[in-house]
Computed example of a mutant assay.
Amino acid sequence: MIKLIANPIAGRGRGREALPAAEEALRHQGLHFATEVTSRPLEAMEIARRAAEEGCELVVAMGGDGTSHEVANGLLSSSNSEVTLGMIPIGTGNDFADMFDTPTDLTALCQRFREGKTRLIDVGQVNDRYFVNVLGIGFDALVSIESLKIQHVLRGFPLYLAAVFITLKEYQIPHITVEFDGERLSMPMTMINVANGKREGGGFLITPDAKNDDGVFDLLIAEGLGRLGILRLLPEVIKGTHVDKEPVTMARAKRVVIDSPDPLPVHADGEILYTDAHHLEIKIIPSRLRVIT
């Protein structure tokens, strides 16, 4: 049995509009499924956990990165380690789905569900929350907060680019200490990304060499930059050519600890976890989640 969890407001309402076509595509493939539509934040997590506990073999997240994040957390917090995650990406960014070359055509997607080819991927854990794509601390978490305020106007890459310019107006650079696999850096930092995937924000290639099944995080640590410095770096991050630029440190690690006397905004897969964190412990869990490919 398949559980389809649909977020009706994903992609500025595309979730609601596309649901009948998605259900018809599933039926056309001869797949047996039950649909639940979310109505509030974190409900997808609860539905996914319950579906896994009831023995569902495949749970499909129909929405964007936030929906996939919630569904993955529900599956990972269940006692069913055999359940598989599928995605119908109709959200704003769809960065996690991009790691699997997920088609946007519903027929092709549902054929994948019927064929049932999967692979195991790593997941990250920060305190008591899981993430599957990127954990962002500092500037890019504030960008995520600002993007929520204007998502009724824009979507995709233009949405996040506009949010960058809004964030630049008042961003205060925090002092952060980060420890990772025996290394320690302590200085003003614009942002830190602890990444399982390559991109965020609808196409910013923050960690272009990341693989989500290699057992390690890819880290981006950006030194404290003024507005002009961030604007100079921005085109490089869009293209993924920032990795050898002086304001940026790239690294790989299995465990990361972050401390700051300043309040840190934090997002996981684009979902805001904290606006005032001071201590974060982050670890990777290898080969923990099975995903349709």
Results as ranks from 00 to 15, higher is better:
L4M: 12
I5Y: 07
I5E: 09
A6E: 10
I9G: 12
R12G: 00
A21S: 12
A22G: 09
A25P: 05
Q29K: 07
G30M: 10
T35K: 06
R40G: 03
P41Y: 14
P41H: 14
L42G: 00
A44T: 05
A44I: 04
R49K: 14
R50F: 08
R50G: 11
A52P: 06
G55V: 09
C56H: 15
V59I: 10
V59C: 09
V60T: 15
A61R: 09
M62G: 06
G66H: 03
E70R: 01
A72Q: 02
L75C: 10
L76T: 04
N80A: 02
E82I: 02
T84W: 04
M87S: 13
M87W: 12
G91P: 05
F96A: 01
A97T: 10
D101P: 03
T102M: 11
T102L: 09
T102W: 07
T102A: 04
A108L: 11
C110M: 11
Q111H: 13
G116A: 04
I121N: 04
V126E: 13
F131M: 03
L135W: 03
I137F: 14
G138L: 08
L142W: 14
L142R: 15
E146C: 12
L148M: 08
L148N: 10
L148S: 10
I150S: 01
I150Q: 00
I150E: 02
Q151M: 08
L154I: 10
R155N: 15
F157N: 00
F157Y: 04
A163W: 08
I166H: 04
I166G: 05
T167Y: 15
L168W: 14
K169F: 06
Q172W: 04
I173C: 12
I173S: 07
P174T: 08
P174Q: 10
H175Y: 15
E179A: 06
E183T: 06
S186G: 08
S186Y: 02
I192A: 03
V194Y: 02
G197C: 12
K198H: 03
E200I: 06
G201H: 08
L205G: 08
T207P: 08
P208F: 06
A210L: 11
D213Q: 01
V216S: 12
V216C: 12
L220P: 08
I221S: 15
E223N: 13
G224W: 00
L228T: 14
G229I: 08
I230M: 13
I230K: 01
I230R: 01
L231P: 00
E236N: 06
E236C: 06
K245N: 14
R255A: 15
L264Y: 08
L264F: 11
G270H: 06
L273W: 07
A277F: 13
R290Y: 11
R290K: 14
